[in-house]
């Protein structure tokens, strides 16, 4: 399963790569990284149907995670669809307002920082299992 992580903090890459080293080595999860909403959109345009899940920070300079979410929903709304990627929001501001807004915009999940990697790993592996299962 291809996952795109969007965060303006550069060290997120090193962290994810180490946290999921076994899964990456095992080929269960593949990570790509973008440091801004704009960069994420560019990546999505280049790798249209590959990305299954997006993990995005909300609070970033420039395009925020919520704006990115809006863009993605807009672009994937028109048929013919490649199946739209799921978007999970990751934020330090775990307030109800942001959560409601994110869910309204179609986020599939809303996680607060600091990230509980054990729980996240479980979720991702579950999704990956689903994803890799042959379509019915």
């Amino acid at each position: 399963m291809n996952i795109l992580v969007v965060d303006d903090e550069l060290d997120v890459r090193a962290l994810f790569e180490q946290r999921f080293r076994r899964e990456i080595r095992g080929g269960q999860l593949r990570f790509a990284f973008a440091h801004s909403g704009e960069e994420a959109l560019d990546y999505l345009h280049e790798h249209a149907s590959e990305v299954v899940l997006i993990l995005s920070d909300i609070n970033m300079p420039g395009m925020s995670g919520l704006e990115l979410l809006g863009h993605i929903r807009q672009e994937y709304a028109a048929p013919p669809p490649p199946a739209p990627p799921q978007v999970m929001m990751l934020t330090a501001y775990g307030d109800d307002d942001s959560r409601r807004q994110a869910l309204e915009l179609g986020a599939s999940d809303f996680l607060t920082k600091p990230v509980d990697f054990v729980a996240l790993k479980q979720k991702l592996l579950q999704l990956a299992a689903h994803d890799d299962a042959p379509p019915l």
């Binding site: 903090e9 060290d11 090193a14 962290l15 180490q18 946290r19 330090a92 920082k113 600091p114 990230v115 990697f117």
Partner: peptide, 14 residues
């Protein structure tokens, strides 16, 4: 402060 502290704990953990 939260951001760097998250990294500290995460990198220590990992």
């Amino acid at each position: 402060i939260q951001n760097p502290l998250n990294f500290v704990t995460n990198f220590a953990d990992v």
